[in-house]
C-alpha cells in the first residue's frame, strides 16, 4: 500500500499499474500489470494441464437470446449489461447529433442488439455443449477465459466493471463434478500458498437481487454450493476479497440447456473461476507495487 496517500487505488494509478479512464471500475492496465496477469494464467494452465481440458475462448459478448435464456436476469438484473446501437436513417442521425451537441439524452434512437455483455466467462459454454448432443461417458472439461461485465461502479479496485475470469468448467455426472470441485479447492489453496498470500476459504453466496435473491442466497449457503477463496485487497468494508470461486450448479444449467450425460440423465455442472484482476491486485497488495522486490518464491512461481 502507498504509505503517502494511503489509498490503494490511487497508489495503483500513481505507480501507473492501472490507468484511470474516468469511470469507476473501468481501467487501463500497464505492461507490468498485464505481465502478472499472463504469468498467473500460465500458472493456472500448468496446474490444470493434466485434465486435458478443451480450450475455448469466447469474445466478451454473448448471444443475447442465450443470455436471456440463461436465467441471469432472474438473479442479477442489477449487474447485467446489454449492447445497444443506433438504428435509423439520415433524419434520426441528424437528431442524434443535435441532441449530442445540446448535451441532452441522445440515446432514444438506440435499439438493443443481438449481443449481451458477458456476465460470467462460462455462460456461453452451456448452450454450445448442449448443441453438441449427449456427453461422452467421461463428461466434459473446458478451459474458459474472457472479459466479463458487471454493472457495479465502485472505488474498490477489486470490484471492476470489466474484468477477466479464467475458468475450468466440468460437465458430467454429479460424482464427476463434485470430485472436480474438491480437486480445485485443494489446487487453488496450494497455488495461493505458493504465491505466499494469506487467504481464507469460506462458504459464500452470489449477490442475487432482491428478496427472492435473499432466499436464493440462503439456499446456496445451506447447500454449500459456493466456496470462495478470499485474500485481502482493499474493500471499503476492510473485508477480504473473493479472488477464486468454486461453484457447484447442480443440474441448474444442465436442465436449462438440456445437457445430457451418456445415459440420458441431465448433466450436472461445476466451475472454478479465477478473478484475474483480483488475484493480480492481491499480489500487488501483499507483496508491494514493485514486482522486482517480490519474494523469490513468488517470482519463481510466476517467472521461474
Amino acid at each position: 500500500m502507498c504509505m503517502v496517500c494511503g489509498n490503494f487505488l490511487d497508489s495503483l494509478f500513481t505507480k501507473g499499474l492501472l490507468i484511470d479512464m474516468g469511470v469507476e471500475g473501468l481501467y487501463g492496465r500497464s505492461g507490468i500489470f498485464e505481465d502478472v496477469v499472463e504469468r498467473l494464467t500460465a500458472l493456472i494452465t500448468r496446474i490444470g494441464k493434466d485434465g486435458d481440458a478443451e480450450v475455448i475462448r469466447f469474445p466478451p459478448g454473448m448471444n443475447r437470446k442465450d443470455f436471456e435464456r440463461s436465467g441471469y436476469l432472474k438473479g442479477f438484473p442489477q449487474l447485467a449489461g446489454t449492447i445497444h446501437s443506433f438504428e435509423g436513417g439520415d433524419k434520426e442521425h441528424a437528431t442524434l447529433l443535435e441532441k449530442l451537441h445540446a448535451n441532452v439524452d441522445w440515446t432514444d434512437s438506440q435499439e438493443i442488439t443481438d449481443v449481451a455483455l458477458m456476465p460470467a466467462a462460462c455462460y456461453p459454454l452451456y448452450p454450445v455443449v448442449a448443441r453438441r448432443g449427449a456427453l461422452p461417458k467421461t463428461g466434459g472439461l473446458y478451459d474458459i477465459y474472457s472479459y466479463c461485465f458487471r454493472h457495479e461502479p465502485s472505488r474498490d479496485p477489486g470490484r471492476m466493471q470489466m474484468f477477466r475470469q479464467r475458468e475450468y468448467v466440468r460437465i458430467g455426472t454429479p460424482e464427476q463434478v463434485v470430485a472436480f470441485r474438491e480437486l480445485w479447492l485443494q489446487r487453488a489453496q496450494e497455488m495461493i500458498a505458493l504465491l505466499e498470500m494469506p487467504f481464507a476459504l469460506e462458504v459464500a453466496n452470489d449477490p442475487f437481487f432482491g428478496r427472492a435473491g435473499r432466499m436464493m442466497a440462503a439456499s446456496q449457503r445451506d447447500q454449500e454450493l459456493k466456496f470462495e477463496l478470499l485474500i485481502r485487497i482493499d474493500s471499503p468494508e476492510n473485508k477480504p476479497t473473493a479472488c477464486i470461486s468454486f461453484n457447484y450448479h447442480q443440474d441448474h444449467f444442465g436442465a436449462n440447456w438440456g445437457i445430457k450425460n451418456e445415459e440420458g440423465a441431465t448433466a450436472h455442472t461445476a466451475c472454478v473461476g479465477f478473478g484475474m484482476e483480483r488475484c493480480t491486485l492481491a499480489l500487488f497488495k501483499t507483496h508491494g507495487l514493485d514486482v522486482d522486490l517480490w519474494p523469490h518464491g513468488v517470482r519463481d512461481a510466476l517467472w521461474g
Binding site: 427472492a212 432466499m215 440462503a218 439456499s219 446456496q220 445451506d222 441448474h252
Partner: peptide
C-alpha cells in the same frame, strides 16, 4: 428447485397477504 421455491414463496405471500421476514428466507 431453488428457483421454483422462490416462485412459491412469492405466491404464498400474495395468497396469505404476508411478507416472509429475512429469518424465514431459507430452505428450511
Amino acid at each position: 428447485t431453488s428457483f421454483a421455491a422462490v416462485q412459491l414463496m412469492l405466491a404464498l405471500e400474495d395468497h396469505f397477504e404476508v411478507e416472509f421476514p429475512e429469518t424465514m428466507l431459507n430452505r428450511r
